[in-house]
Design a protein around this nucleic acid. Structure first.
Lengths: 167, 167
DNA sequence: TCAAAAATTGACTTACTTTGACCATTTAAA
DNA sequence: TTTAAATGGTCAAAGTAAGTCAATTTTTGA
């Protein structure tokens, strides 16, 4: 297993052990525990604990310093509105779209198969046509938006989406 | 026996050895085992493990990288080949895509929500960008193809391959 | 026999990870 | 109020591993 994956898992286990949604950790201690460079911790944070992954981090330097990781808590409806109104916008990359879909699944908003289907629809290979990346990203944002709106409109019986979103 | 054939056979034996329908392998290790150039592995994959052959591959670069090969469920293979090669081809309109998805649902190949999600992803509004219709139809065919290939990779029953890996 | 197709190789490219040197901030001691 | 110690942050280089492409060689089929 990759070091980065091990550290990611370690942090996630720490967080699930608590009933609150965030933890503080000491960068140097964690690095020593994993026998790695302290900056490795920053690498893990920046590749696996970003807002797109559903986390926000902050830190404090100096004596008694720490790194704080907090899981973003939103209702399904709020989350959907955030994605449609603020996050997706007019353009999104394949990697970003993938993260958003996986995160939607982790939150229990959509099923695993929905997530994978959406990832497939917005993947780089799905849009591997000779167009500028900027155009692909614009197209991708529309596809993702269209799929999210579809999910949001699913009948309440089969899910939690009874209400409409006017966005 | 040709090297390519030997590698093909080796991989297929690996897959049959598992009860799962997919495996991960290390390109460099396999190349070393067969005393060949690593790119030979890519050649074998691209000539013998394509969707037409009933397989889908994915990979990860960098430290801890791998190549993943997943077999398409046997019973779906022929129909999938027909859809990908003959029905969808290189270009498809929004109306045709919609009909195709609805038909797949009626045949029981995909669920209602899958069908609607796929229709949303390939709808005219999802692709309402200033591009020639011919380009949109080409893009749409790739999106649809990507989603179908994803569905074909789903585990047939439950608790099989696909349950325990991150896409 | 020989042209076309398939197979093989290797140089170059892209992607992700790990490390370390140097920088910035905060606290605590002098 | 300086200054030193304790933290965390940044960034670029090195390391690891897969992808691409085109030149070359081998095999196949008419």
């Amino acid at each position: 297993m990759r070091l980065s994956d091990a550290i990611e898992q370690f942090i996630k286990e720490m967080m699930s052990g608590e009933q609150q949604s965030g933890i503080d950790l000491k960068r140097n201690e964690l690095a020593e525990y994993f026998h790695c460079a302290p900056s490795q911790i920053n690498y893990v944070l920046s590749t696996r604990f970003t807002p797109d992954h559903g986390y926000v981090t902050s830190s404090q330097r100096g004596g008694g310093g720490y790194i704080r990781i907090v899981r973003i808590v939103r209702s399904d409806k709020e989350h959907m509105q955030y994605l449609l109104r603020d996050r997706i916008g007019e353009s999104i990359t394949a990697g970003e779209a993938q993260l958003l879909c996986l995160n939607l699944h982790e939150r229990g908003v959509i099923g695993k198969e929905d997530a994978e289907l959406m990832i497939a629809a917005t993947s780089a290979s799905a849009l591997s046509v000779p167009l500028p990346e900027s155009v692909k990203d614009a197209v991708r944002s529309r596809i993702l938006r269209s799929m999210l709106l579809n999910i949001a409109q699913r009948p309440a019986g089969s899910g939690k989406w009874g209400e409409d979103y006017d966005l």
